[in-house]
Design a protein around this nucleic acid. Structure first.
Length: 300
DNA sequence: TCTATTTGACCTAC
DNA sequence: GTAGGTCAAATAGA
């Protein structure tokens, strides 16, 4: 697939916020329209092909849903403030010089880094508990960054306040979710996580990561075949690796997939990444409850 | 058995 | 004294 500029106005500093907003809404609408067209074509091509048809239907349905949610948010007159908006601090100011960055997002896990939960606390005057995460390289590479996630609203989608304390020193390149725009034929696209890897990310994979990466590549390859009207490798019984049938249980540092950018595994919204969403290609999107949000309260 | 999450206890800032 | 942040033992799942 050819790389194209995402916005006709990209790079123009003279464009007003309203104009950029209009462009975003227009592009989202276009994306939604194209997804619907693709869904019609794919389902027509895959009719009667069992799992391949179901897989394509599920993924395209989630893509369509994601566009709908984004459009709904962007079009709402009382929509939530932009992601980088600083929130009035709910916590106490400890008076130190540790850098803190706060933002509001509907998908607190998709920030391109991997986190390990180390605590959860009920905060006074709030309806939801606050969860505390450390970078998974906290010990290994002495990375000091922590992340606090607190649900702020129970809307559709629910919004979370995410506070980052300190900066990453683990030298782990953040994934770039926006590259998803370029589509499934981009070799960098990681469909199993809803994110992309940078070209040199492979060098950072440890032994466990290599196996995980292999599984992801199989999934990507399989999906490409499905969307191309072919049988996925292994589905005919000849391959040595089958399309992932079910999540092999919880995989913390390789959380299963988020197709539509919902919370927990990893993390996918327009600006951000990880923890807890497991994507079962065979039929269901499921979430962990590491954010204190009951699974039945999730917007899907 | 290993790894990640949960949760009560502890520490510290206000 | 209260509340936010972190630690670490207990627990659960693969």
């Amino acid at each position: 697939m050819q790389t194209q500029p995402r916005f006709a106005v990209s790079g123009s500093s003279s464009v007003s916020a309203d104009e950029r907003e209009a462009v975003v809404i227009r592009e989202l609408a276009r994306g939604h329209e194209l997804t619907e067209q693709l869904r019609a074509e794919a389902l027509s091509a895959l009719r009667g092909q069992g799992q391949a048809e179901a897989t394509a239907a599920l993924i395209l349905q989630e893509m369509s849903r994601a566009f709908t949610v984004c459009l709904s948010i962007m079009s709402s007159p009382d929509r939530a403030p932009p992601p980088e908006m600083p929130e009035p601090s709910a916590g106490r100011n400890r008076g130190d010089s540790i850098p803190r960055k706060e933002k509001l997002t509907s998908s607190p896990h998709f920030d391109g880094h991997q986190w390990r939960k180390y605590g959860q606390k009920r905060i006074t005057n709030t309806n939801f508990p606050r969860c505390y995460y450390k970078c998974i390289y906290h010990r290994e590479r002495n990375c000091p960054v922590t992340k606090q996630v607190q649900q702020r609203s129970n809307g559709d989608p629910p919004m979370y306040a995410v506070t980052y304390v300190n900066e990453h020193t683990c030298d782990t390149p953040a994934w770039e979710p926006e590259a998803v725009v370029y589509g499934a034929t981009n070799p960098l696209l990681d469909l199993s996580s809803g994110l992309t890897r940078q070209p040199d990310a492979r060098a950072l994979l440890d032994e466990r990561g290599i196996k995980e990466e292999h599984e992801r590549q199989v999934l990507v390859s399989s999906l490409a075949c499905v969307l191309g009207g072919q049988s996925p490798p292994g589905s005919s019984g000849g391959g040595d690796v089958a399309l992932v049938q079910e999540p092999q249980g919880r995989t913390r540092d390789a959380p299963a997939v988020s197709v539509a950018g919902a919370p927990e595994l990893p993390p996918l919204d327009a600006d951000d990444g990880l923890d807890v969403m497991d994507y079962d290609v065979t039929g269901a999107l499921c979430f962990g409850d590491s954010y204190g949000l009951p699974v039945h309260d999730l917007p899907f």
